[in-house]
Design a protein around this nucleic acid. Structure first.
Length: 212
DNA sequence: GTTACCGCATACTACGGCCG
DNA sequence: CGGCCGTAGTATGCGGTAAC
């Protein structure tokens, strides 16, 4: 959706003044996603495992927060700083990334520890630990950064040797995706044929039901 | 079996602060 | 002073399930 269209949609939603939360027993508004026919028809934008691994290596190589260097390396074509920042938050398991800024770390290692943290002071949002005590002072950020550096930072000879995937010719990428699509279509056809065979075997006379 | 309701998960965005 | 970044809040996609 374009920004203008989205803005119009937001304005329209505001005009009817429906609550964004959904109180029990109150919701009678038809939403686009209530239509079963619309379900499962859109791809959720996001990351696949391979891209996450590339970002993980890029953070080790360039340091957390050095988004421009990651973009310039073209190891994650099409990804914006906002997307990388969000994915980094997920890997770290916490929303605030300032205390890791500039550190060459394995974000998943931090995330594994964060996932185990418990306690009344730990507030989570979508499994990410969020700040509850207001904005951190510069001194506190520096103190935490030093602690993280001592605990998590990868040695320079290791991160300097990290190889990131080179940008690929988009036309070659397109060709490969087309080949993948053909393979998947063939697999789907084989599965449909198997199902038909099973159905026919279960029906004496073997009348085949039309499939859509 | 179908549809509507509910709520979680997460992508997106606004805004303020910081830094060069 | 302008651009970048971090943070917090908002919008929405989607799966589970109850009701019909």
């Amino acid at each position: 959706m374009s920004a203008a269209a989205k803005g119009a949609a937001v304005a329209a939603a505001a005009a009817v003044a429906e609550p964004r939360s959904m109180p029990v027993g109150q919701r009678n508004v038809v939403r686009s996603n209530d239509s079963a026919s619309l379900w499962n028809c859109t791809l959720s934008p996001g990351w696949n495992q391979a891209e996450v691994q590339v970002l993980r290596k890029a953070l080790m190589r360039f340091g957390v927060g050095n988004w421009m260097k990651i973009i310039e390396s073209e190891c994650l074509p099409g990804k914006t700083i906002a997307q990388m920042n969000l994915q980094t938050q997920r890997m770290l398991g916490q929303q605030s990334t300032a205390e890791f800024n500039g550190l060459h770390i394995d974000a998943l290692e931090v995330g594994a520890l964060n996932s185990k943290r418990q306690g009344p002071e730990i507030k989570r949002k979508n499994n990410c630990i969020v700040n509850t005590g207001g904005k951190l002072s510069r001194e506190e950020v520096e103190r935490r950064r030093a602690a993280h550096r001592a605990q998590f930072e990868v040695p320079k000879d290791v991160w300097a040797a990290i190889e990131l995937p080179r940008p690929e010719n988009p036309l070659l990428l397109l060709d490969r995706k087309r080949e993948e699509l053909k393979t998947l279509a063939a697999e789907l056809e084989a599965v449909v044929a198997q199902i038909s065979a099973i159905e026919n075997a279960g029906q004496p006379g073997g009348t085949k039901r039309p499939r859509e």
